[in-house]
Design a protein around this nucleic acid. Structure first.
Length: 465
DNA sequence: GCATGATCATGC
DNA sequence: GCATGATCATGC
């Protein structure tokens, strides 16, 4: 083996060498790197064809960094405690908005191992504290060395987000301690998720230490919203130099408590009074008037207030009006479906999955009688129970299939599914968008059925039978 | 009262 | 000029 051209015990040295890939392809960076990166033999043809996920990562390890390709549980650069990860990007729409395509799967674990760990000495921390991230444009038709590498950067999740990552890790481990590994879901956590690995078949089920019930095998991941946030943050820092983002939370401050404390001064106030106190105008014709007040309260209504923690967690802040009889009248909407995006997504890497596996904050505006005003009555955190994910998946899959077939007339309706439906969502019905078939179609979005929210959220809060 | 389709004002 | 987070309007 020839000597490596970088110092593999030094993160900066590895990063310097890695950054030569940025805005380029492996091919364009010159094959001579392979030689002086220490690879003795030619790259087998089979390594260049992207047959499976992870092939870019393997190729970088061997061909570019000149390392032995191993699957040890150590980080890829053990002396520097640096892990190499690749993350595919996709570009969408007329403005070619670039987003991360998939959640980032990190280390696998067994429930028995996890049960014995504390965070500070955990395998997760050891392996993923420093990650060399290679973001590349996904393209299934290209050989790995022709893939365009957009950004190469270092993400130190504990330097950036230690408190939340630790909270998430402990939330997952807590379920193992309590013999509830089978109840772990992605909605439990904000940044770090426990995603399922392998099929649901009996053979892929794992034992857990404090219960006889077997649980699906899982791996740690950066949830799609978090890895996408990381990409956007790193791109912004690259554009602007290294000015730190505005954070909502102080160190060791809990997200939920912070949100409650922000809403606290406005509780039981009418929309009018809240607007006055915030020095905002209140237009009763504006349909998102309550939402905009709630967003202002937590500092989300101005671009300069763009909040790191909201972006990183993908938390969904939604306002709901509750009538005097405790009923709600409206369904809950999401952003418009991108017809080009959905046909290329898999459910667990879809942006709708990302939304429904995020936490929800409901700001409830209640009315006590027909004549009185809506006032801010409750602020509650909620997550969709994992058992219900399959209902949302059904609606999503049906929609994906219909879009693929070019059928924009028969999306899932309210009576078709207890949890979700698809309905128009636009400024007006004349604003059409291009479809993958080249036709112009109405903009639609996924909605959560109000009946589902009534039963699972409102009735419980107001103790309605 | 619900299902469905249409649309409002705001911020970027 | 459009995306967004919703509410409004209509017909049954």
């Amino acid at each position: 083996m020839k000597k490596l051209v970088y110092d593999d015990s030094n993160i900066d040295s590895i990063m310097d060498f890695a950054r030569r890939l940025e805005s380029s392809t492996i091919h364009e960076t010159n094959f001579e790197h392979h030689t002086y990166a220490g690879l003795d033999q030619d790259i087998p043809e089979s390594e260049i064809i992207p047959k499976h996920k992870g092939s870019l990562g393997n190729y970088l390890e061997t061909a570019y960094f000149g390392k032995e390709n191993d699957n040890k549980s150590q980080p890829d650069f053990p002396k520097a405690k640096l892990e190499l990860k690749t993350s595919p990007l996709k570009a969408l729409g007329d403005n070619h908005e670039v987003k991360v395509k998939e959640r980032l799967v990190l280390s696998h674990f067994t429930y028995n191992d996890l049960d014995k760990e504390v965070f500070e000495q955990s395998h997760f921390k050891d392996k993923n504290e420093n990650i060399l991230l290679v973001f590349y444009e996904h393209n299934a038709d290209l050989a790995v060395d022709d893939l365009h590498i957009e950004l190469v950067d270092l993400w130190q999740c504990l330097k950036e987000d230690e408190y939340q990552i630790k909270c998430d890790w402990e939330t997952i481990v807590e379920k193992v301690h309590n013999g509830k590994a089978h109840e772990i879901s992605e909605g439990d956590t904000l940044y770090l998720g426990a995603c399922t690995k392998g099929a649901t078949s009996a053979s892929s089920m794992q034992v857990q230490p404090h219960s006889a019930v077997k649980a699906r095998g899982r791996a740690f991941c950066f949830k799609l919203g978090y890895i996408n946030h990381i990409f956007q943050v790193l791109m912004e820092r690259k554009r602007k130099g290294r000015s730190p983002e505005k954070r909502l939370l102080d160190e060791n401050e809990k997200f939920e408590q912070k949100i409650f404390s922000l809403f606290e001064p406005f509780m039981k106030m009418s929309a009018d009074e809240i607007a006055k106190l915030l020095n905002k105008k209140y237009n009763p014709k504006e349909k998102s008037r309550y939402a905009n007040l709630a967003r202002s309260i937590v500092g989300l209504n101005k671009k300069e207030d763009n909040c790191y923690e909201f972006n990183a967690s993908g938390i969904q802040l939604k306002t709901i009006r509750v009538e005097p009889n405790g009923r709600i009248t409206e369904h809950i909407s999401f952003k418009a479906i991108d017809y080009f995006e959905i046909i290329d997504e898999e459910w667990e890497d879809s942006y709708f999955y990302s939304a429904i596996t995020s936490k929800f904050i409901f700001a409830l505006f209640k009315k006590d009688s027909a004549e009185s005003e809506y006032y801010l009555d409750r602020v509650v955190f909620w997550q969709i129970p994992e058992d219900d994910y399959k209902q949302f998946e059904k609606v999503w899959s049906d929609t994906k299939e219909k879009v693929k077939q070019g059928d924009y007339q028969h999306f899932s309706k309210i009576k078709d599914n207890p949890a979700s439906h698809v309905r128009p969502h636009a400024q007006n019905s004349y604003k059409l968008v291009l479809s993958p078939q080249g036709t112009k179609e109405k903009k639609m979005c996924f909605w959560i059925n109000k009946q589902y929210i009534q039963k699972n959220v409102i009735n419980k809060i107001y103790k309605i039978k």
